[in-house]
């Protein structure tokens, strides 16, 4: 399997706090990797490092390397904006732009960058919404307010917005934790489909979800990577006692 993103001795500090410690691991192309672990274990911090979201936090310091197609995204000449165009992100709480219509939200990545072509835009909106199975639900009210959608619809809209700019990697930070079980199921089915085209990295609190949607799983504890491997193996015969204890619900 082709490796798409590679962490090499990644360390993240926030001021005096050492949030991520010496993490090295691989994420593979066209597969879903789940990052699990108890709260505060650094899993979201790792995820945000992969599209340089920490750049905006003055106290954050990232060291080590993150290779995207074998190029270090923290290299001096690497441009965070072009990296974020290749590595999209879906957040825990659905965050459509409240002042924009459904249509404008999907096309936001183009619109905010000031390069929209009408006919191309229509096509991108339709294909992106179809891809997240939202098209039939909203095709009659594309100009309507995005905040009138349900939480699950909003999250699918956010995913549509992310794939509209044609990224290569999609980071998902607990994308279903604010949703009801039915919406969660739809998001999970969507993840399953999206991996045909994208490399997906998902942080989740929910171990059943990790087991259901992912091909690979990484278990983090206190900022360190305890164990990473194929999901089936992590959930049935983990190498480390700590992983087994967490998976079986003995702590965390």
């Amino acid at each position: 399997m082709q490796n798409k993103v590679k962490l090499e001795q990644l360390n993240v500090h926030f001021g005096a706090t050492h949030a991520v410690k010496d993490v090295s691991m691989d994420f593979f192309e066209n597969s879903v990797t789940a990052i699990i672990g108890p709260s505060g274990c650094g899993k979201s911090t790792v995820l945000r490092a992969i599209n340089r979201m920490h750049d905006l936090v003055p106290s954050a310091r990232v060291t080590g390397r993150i290779l995207l197609d074998d190029k270090d995204i923290y290299d001096k000449v690497a441009d965070p904006v072009s990296i974020r165009r290749r590595v999209g992100m879906v957040f825990q709480k659905p965050n459509p732009f409240p002042a924009m219509s459904i249509y404008d939200n999907v096309i936001a990545g183009y619109k905010l960058n000031g390069r929209v072509n009408r006919s191309e835009a229509d096509e991108v909106v339709e294909s992106s919404l179809k891809r997240v199975a939202l098209w039939d639900e909203v095709k009659d009210r594309l100009k309507g307010n995005s905040m009138e959608l349900s939480g699950g619809q909003q999250q699918r809209l956010c995913i549509a917005r992310t794939i509209a700019v044609k990224p290569e990697v999609i980071l998902m930070d607990e994308p279903a934790s604010a949703l009801d079980p039915i919406s969660t199921l739809k998001i999970e089915e969507l993840i399953e489909e999206l991996k045909e085209k994208y490399t997906i990295i998902i942080v989740t609190h929910n171990m059943q979800q990790a087991a259901r949607v992912s091909d690979h799983t990484a278990f983090f504890y206190l900022g360190e990577l305890v164990e990473a491997g194929e999901t089936r193996k992590i959930f049935t015969t983990p190498d480390k006692k700590q992983t087994e204890d967490y998976i079986t619900g003995r702590f965390g």
Binding site: N51, M53, L56, V81, S82, R84, R85, R86, G88, M89, F91, K93, N95, P96, F97, P98, A108, G109, L112, N113, C158, R161, T162, V165
Partner: peptide, 11 residues
């Protein structure tokens, strides 16, 4: 979250 949404789109 709105700033992050925009930045994550490569804006």
């Amino acid at each position: 979250s709105l700033r992050e949404a925009s930045l994550a789109l490569g804006v």
